[in-house]
Design a protein around this nucleic acid. Structure first.
Lengths: 136, 136
DNA sequence: GTTATACCTCGAGCCCACTCTAGGTTTCGG
DNA sequence: CCGAAACCTAGAGTGGGCTCGAGGTATAAC
């Protein structure tokens, strides 16, 4: 079976080898096997699991909670409910983040317009009659 | 003119007074006036400016870069171009974040489905024939 | 007037997620 | 068989963003 070195995996996932070893230290990859001398051997499925780790990270989950999930995975079917619940909750938090990002975007777009017109006028004073503050 | 105490502003923006004082220390609110004895007096426009700070923070901008923006604001019309460029760039990064969040969401929704069916079957084994790894 | 509460500064401390250094072993190309 | 490059661990260091403690002043409520 084809395996990959830590640097190959780092490249694939756009992480550093430091980060991967740190994840290992934190218990995020108990499944990765080793050669007798200790070198890590990553399988395709290990890379898949790490992609889930990256997904959870991208959803804003802290490393320690991701570790809980990994532990549940190791515990087998008895933890299916927890894992399901976790993903449902993740879904909710990501939805909330999308909502917030949308609001952020609206303000930023408004600012783009604000500065575009100010630039055209050569001064911010064109907006002085708006309720938008002096830092517009 | 009506003013607000630091704790009122903290409440309004859902921040702690510690955080607000930290922002001040970092130069994010040079516009806030003081009583002769040193107590901060926030005006409505100050709160408006802080909302922009929060917006930039929400867009992922680090405090030091937000400070640059605040400095530009203090410098007046000569920095209109920089500020415009900054918001245009912010718009792009927020769009990128939305894209990534969407991808994250897709994986999470897939996982919700994966665990829902596994729960119904009572075991994760129902997915064993998929290319999804052992930590599915 | 006094007591409690809110304000202030300065600097230390904390947590997270890396990031790197030192010192050593292993593997691989020529 | 040798030297370079990649691997390993343990533990220290970094940077960002707060968060808090000490020690002190100011205002508000009784």
């Amino acid at each position: 079976m084809k395996t990959f070195s830590i640097s190959e995996v780092a490249k694939e996932l756009d992480l550093t080898v430091y980060t991967l070893r740190y994840y290992d230290k934190e218990g995020l990859m108990p499944f990765v096997e080793r050669t007798p001398s200790g070198t890590r051997l990553f399988k395709e499925t290990d890379i898949g699991a790490l992609k889930i780790v990256e997904c959870l990270k991208a959803s804003g989950m802290p490393i320690k909670e991701i570790k809980n999930f990994i532990d549940w995975c190791s515990d087998g079917d008895s933890t299916l409910q927890q894992r399901y619940d976790m993903f449902v909750e993740r879904k909710a938090t990501v939805e909330a983040q999308m909502e917030e990002l949308k609001k952020t975007m609206e303000i930023i777009e408004h600012k783009c317009f604000y500065y575009k017109t100010a630039l055209e006028a050569g001064t911010e004073d064109v907006h002085k009659n708006n309720k938008i503050g002096s830092f517009g």
